[in-house]
Computed example of a mutant assay.
Amino acid sequence: MSRILLAPLEGLADPLLRNVLTAVGGYDWGICEFVRVSNNVLPEKTFQRICPELLNGSRTESGTPMRVQLLGSDPELMAANARRLVTLDPAGVDINFGCPAPTVVRHRGGSALLGEPELLQRIVAAVRAEVPVHIPFTAKMRLGIDDTSLAVACAQALQAGGIDELIVHARTRVDGYRPPARWEWIARIRENIDIPIIANGEVWTVDDYNACRAATACADIMLGRGAVADPLLAQRIRGHDLGGWAAVVPCVAAYWQGVRCKVLPEHAGGRIKQWLALVRRNYPEAGLLHDRLRPVKEADDIDALLLAEGILRERPLVA
């Protein structure tokens, strides 16, 4: 049976949105935003802040397992933090070799390491030594920094380091998020390693999902921005017709309720506007709502507008 997985999306798929998306259903598991490992062993509360699912059996409120992703370049520090992390019983441990963000790259993290296959292997091997065999251990990589010349070598290094499965985002760091994704390179990598590969990149629709599986020969697909832009996508892929905008409205209401409980009022509006800016790709109604919300600054005024639009049935609870 094909698995559908929720990607780690820094600054986008936060715990609140993960709860909303997984409540709709269709996901086998997901990965949280990365935990940055720099110069010390992080306290338990840091892991729990970034992945609050750890306080709920490493699952979202609806029960979807959520794995924890580490990002760093020092094998010993990564191993030491993995040792701390596994005491919290995560649903899985993942290592980030794919983030293209300039701040991450400047500090030799994420995709910046894809020019050094030997270092990738050392990091993974060090973490593998700390992760018990009953905890799934994966890595997520891109195809390279500015070309794909080391894509296969990096994948082979990660396999040699001891990961159980490899997630491949079919772009280089320089590609950023520009289409198209290079799905054919996932197929090449798959032919040269023995562990399962999960394909990721540019899957926005059911047709994209089918095309990605055909091009990569991968059974399992990880959804990223496509999942955020269409909260119903995973269920659509599974053949369930949940309807259109009317089925998304409860998601918007649930997300705003979560934001109002967890986010300072002055920052709350930005969160829902950011999400609707992506959702409008699939639902014109989201674009209209986004346009109405754009000039509204105060959280209380957003409450009132969402009530008037029929998104909310009552004013949200505020912490």
Rank of each mutant, 00 (worst) to 15 (best):
M1C: 06
L5K: 01
L6S: 09
E10I: 10
E10Q: 15
D14L: 01
L17V: 08
R18F: 11
V20W: 05
V24A: 07
C32G: 15
L42W: 09
K45T: 13
Q48V: 09
L55Y: 08
S58Y: 04
S58D: 04
R59M: 12
P65V: 08
R67S: 14
Q69L: 02
L71F: 05
E76F: 01
L77K: 02
R83L: 09
P90S: 12
G92H: 10
V93G: 04
V93F: 08
D94F: 08
N96H: 14
P100E: 04
T103W: 13
T103V: 14
V105N: 03
V105A: 11
R106V: 05
H107G: 11
G109F: 04
L114F: 04
V124T: 07
V133M: 04
A139V: 08
M141T: 03
R142L: 15
L143T: 10
D147M: 05
L150K: 15
A157S: 10
G162R: 04
L166V: 03
L166C: 02
V168D: 00
V168Q: 01
A170L: 10
R173T: 12
R173N: 11
D175R: 06
G176S: 12
G176A: 11
R182M: 14
E191F: 08
E191H: 13
N192E: 15
I198H: 01
V203H: 05
W204Y: 11
T216N: 07
G226V: 01
V228I: 15
A229I: 07
D230Q: 06
G243L: 04
G244I: 06
V248I: 12
V249F: 01
P250I: 04
C251L: 08
W256K: 05
W256A: 07
C261F: 06
L264R: 10
L264V: 07
H267D: 06
I272Q: 02
Q274K: 11
L278M: 10
R280W: 09
R281E: 11
N282F: 02
N282S: 08
Y283I: 06
A286I: 13
A286Q: 05
H290S: 07
P295R: 08
E298R: 13
A299L: 07
L305Q: 08
L307G: 10
E309G: 10
G310D: 03
P316D: 07
